[in-house]
């Protein structure tokens, strides 16, 4: 009986929960480098066009950005709590907390939608006539804004879909206190998406 192995269920089925978790972490390492590339672009262009970035960031809605940060941080709490609840075999609470996480993810995307449409209605979107008249630095700022928040939003959307599956799995007994890898890995992913936003928030909304 190896200490490394995860809990063995009554069925006798063996699971390597540690291996599953490390696999998820390896995926997250690639995600760090994926978003990292864009953060490098942001910082280099920001250093080059400091004044333009300062001007363009004035367009951002600090209230909505702060609200979204609070929503995402709270959703990270609820998914973390849902895993503790699952391990304590409080499945009802776990499902409720997972549902709350999905709802907060949706709220995040709705707020993001309002932010984007407000900008688009002002004529600020990639390749728009209004944007093309702006300085090179401002074009870069909004380009990076749309790409980075867009890819982050896509990650949130994927997270919502995956957590929805976890709710189903928890309800049907596929995810249990002895077989929690799927939910745990989903949690890791969701927290990672939260961390990306933790950095996007100051870069686009605060350091104006």
């Amino acid at each position: 009986m190896s200490y490394e192995r995860g809990a063995i269920e009554k069925s006798g089925e063996q699971r390597d929960q540690t291996g599953a978790k490390y696999g998820m972490w390896f995926f997250l390492f690639t995600e760090i480098l994926f978003f990292g590339g864009m953060f490098i672009l942001y910082s280099v262009f920001r250093a080059k066009y400091t004044q333009d970035f300062h001007l363009a960031a004035g367009e951002e809605n600090l209230l909505l950005g702060s609200l979204n940060t609070a929503v995402l941080l709270t959703s990270s709490l609820s998914i973390a709590l849902s895993i503790s609840a699952l391990k304590k075999e409080n499945y009802r609470l776990s499902v409720q907390l997972q549902t709350a996480t999905v709802l907060m993810g949706l709220i995040f995307l709705v707020i993001k939608y309002f932010e984007w449409t407000a900008k688009i209605s002002k004529g600020i979107y990639p390749d728009s006539p209004v944007l093309l008249k702006m300085s090179a630095g401002q074009i870069l700022f909004f380009g990076l804004y749309y790409v980075m928040t867009g890819l982050h939003g896509l990650h949130v959307l994927i997270g919502i879909v995956v957590i929805s599956f976890m709710i189903y799995f928890t309800k049907t007994g596929n995810v249990t206190s002895g077989n929690f890898s799927k939910l745990e890995n989903t949690g890791l992913y969701w927290h990672f998406v939260d961390i990306v936003w933790i950095y996007l928030f100051p870069l686009f909304y605060l350091i104006t």
């Binding site: 009986m1 200490y3 490394e4 192995r5 995860g6 809990a7 063995i8 929960q17 540690t18 978790k21 973390a80 709590l81 503790s84 391990k87 304590k88």
Partner: peptide, 11 residues
């Protein structure tokens, strides 16, 4: 059988 990292973090 459960390892250290499997422990339940209190709410």
């Amino acid at each position: 059988e459960t390892e250290k990292s499997d422990h339940i973090v209190p709410y």
